[in-house]
Design a protein around this nucleic acid. Structure first.
Length: 433
RNA sequence: UCCUCGGUAGCUCAAUCGGCAGAGCGGGUGGCUGUUAACCACUAGGUUCGAGGUUCGAGUCCUCGCCGAGGAGCCA
């Protein structure tokens, strides 16, 4: 007779049944005549209890000889037990070992340094903390796509490999492309704009690459960005979309990931507070507020990381910083109708010091002004010919933004560093594993 | 590129003023019938990142180098 193979998360609905689970041994304790096998299968964890007098001597000895992370198949009867975190444990009747490691598992039960853990990222992902973060990441992405789909958006992905250097070669990864050079995408936005003229409401979602030598807790060289782009949305419509998207994501994480947030010891009251309307500050108001708070960033400069941190600590909900000086922003942003020195853009800063999670803008839709901006910034015109075509053939008011997935995950999960928010972080000095 | 901090047992760290290189975890052996990062006893385990220098004596001080972390700059 073969017992039913069950996921650990489903064990509570099989009380008093004999079942099989397949997974890994993440810890083993023993009191001499009782072994406690801590088991994990990806869906959850459960304690297997093996009592010496209830199993054969060979089996009892075999269990004692297991090393951490042995892959096993355990047969047992599901018992209710109020001492167990999930309310159930498994009275083990049989054990089959797929593989018992011949060396000790590198990641121990006590603390490790970040360098060691990153070197062992392939094993670190097995830890409960990393599992919680990856489940939240999955929910963030899933709920973002869900929100856009429900609101009439079409997924139109953009290319990863681009032949044009675009806006300044500094931040681009160069690759060999047969007999010429190509570059890894920094953004899909320009392509999304073209798609918006075809489909109205679109978004792209994929990896983006920045060859910047940034060494901060907010930067990765490879990260995932969600970029919606909407025809006939202006600056204000754009911010309303961002607000709706973020509220939806946070609500869905709260709905589905309570266990994960608890295991990360995240203060969920901070997340429950994330509701519309968000705060709005014009750039000049932000600078004024910063000066009162001790910053010496001059009017006209972009906000530094420190500035973002200070600002977000003043608010309990996300805050939009609107209409930056033209000089610190990209060429494609639309000039402010009331002030030619400003552009119609917004950065959305997450609270608790997390800072920028979204950067968006209304796009310049006037051919002459756009080409003037390209020339002003000393950019080559040839690569932008197709982009300029969008302003020649039925130009249209349109807006969009880019949301950094890892920054959102780091904020919602309460992480100290963005590198834990992606399965395989790529930073300036880390390409492995 | 700049600033700061660090590199000691497999891992995390300690070592006072320059004076015998230690602890916890992990490993090994033994014990324990309800453990929750189990516990208890015993035990093995070291080129103190590298090269040079000062000194009776260097983990500790000096010089150079290598590696990493945090931050700045950079970064829609």
């Amino acid at each position: 007779m073969t017992a039913l193979w069950v996921s650990i998360k489903d064990l509570p609905s099989h009380v008093e049944e004999t079942v099989v689970i397949r997974g890994w041994l993440y810890n083993l304790r023993s009191s001499g005549k009782i072994h406690f096998l801590q088991l994990r299968d990806g869906s959850g964890t459960v304690q297997g209890v093996m009592v010496k007098k209830e199993v054969s001597e060979d089996l009892f000895a075999a269990a004692k000889g297991l090393w951490l992370e042995a892959s096993v198949e355990v047969t047992g009867t599901v018992r209710k037990d109020e001492r167990a975190p999930s309310g159930v444990e498994l009275s083990v009747t049989d054990l089959r070992v797929f593989q018992n490691p011949s060396e000790e598992y590198p990641i121990g039960k006590k603390d490790h340094g970040i360098d060691f853990l990153l070197d062992h990222r392939h094993l670190w992902l097995r830890s409960s903390r990393q599992q919680a973060i990856m489940r939240i990441r999955d929910r963030v992405i899933r709920s973002a796509r869900e929100y856009l789909q429900e609101n009439g958006f079409l997924l139109i992905d953009s290319p990863i490999i681009s032949g044009a250097a675009g806006e300044g070669v500094s931040g681009l990864f160069e690759i060999d492309y047969f007999d010429s050079k190509a570059y890894l995408a920094q953004t899909g936005q320009l392509y999304a704009e073209a798609a918006a003229a075809a489909f109205g409401k679109v978004y792209c979602f994929g990896p983006t690459f920045r060859a910047e030598k940034s060494k901060t807790r907010r930067h990765l060289t490879e990260f995932w960005m969600l970029e919606p782009e909407v025809a006939f949305y202006d600056h204000k419509d754009n911010m309303a979309l961002q607000e709706g998207l973020i509220c939806h994501i946070v609500a869905k994480v709260l709905e589905h990931c309570r266990t994960e947030l608890a295991s990360l010891e995240r203060d969920v009251s901070k997340l429950e507070n994330i509701k519309a309307p968000f705060y709005h500050l014009q750039y000049d108001e932000a600078i004024e507020m910063l000066h009162k708070l001790g910053s010496d960033t001059p009017y006209g400069d972009d906000l530094g990381n420190e500035d973002e941190t200070i600002l977000t600590q003043q608010f309990d909900r996300p805050v939009f910083i609107e209409c930056y000086p033209k000089t610190v922003k990209a060429f494609y942003m639309k000039e402010h109708p009331d002030n030619p020195n400003l552009v119609l853009c917004d950065d959305l800063l997450a609270p608790e010091g997390y800072g920028e999670i979204i950067g968006g803008s209304q796009r310049e839709d006037d051919y002459d002004r756009l080409i003037a901006r390209i020339r002003e910034q000393g950019l080559p015109e040839e690569p932008y010919e197709w982009y300029l075509d969008l302003r020649k053939f039925g130009t249209f008011v349109h807006s969009g933004f880019g949301m950094g997935i890892e920054r959102v995950v780091a904020w919602i999960s309460g992480l100290q560093h963005i590198r834990e928010a992606i399965p395989w972080p790529r930073t300036i000095y880390r390409l492995k594993p």
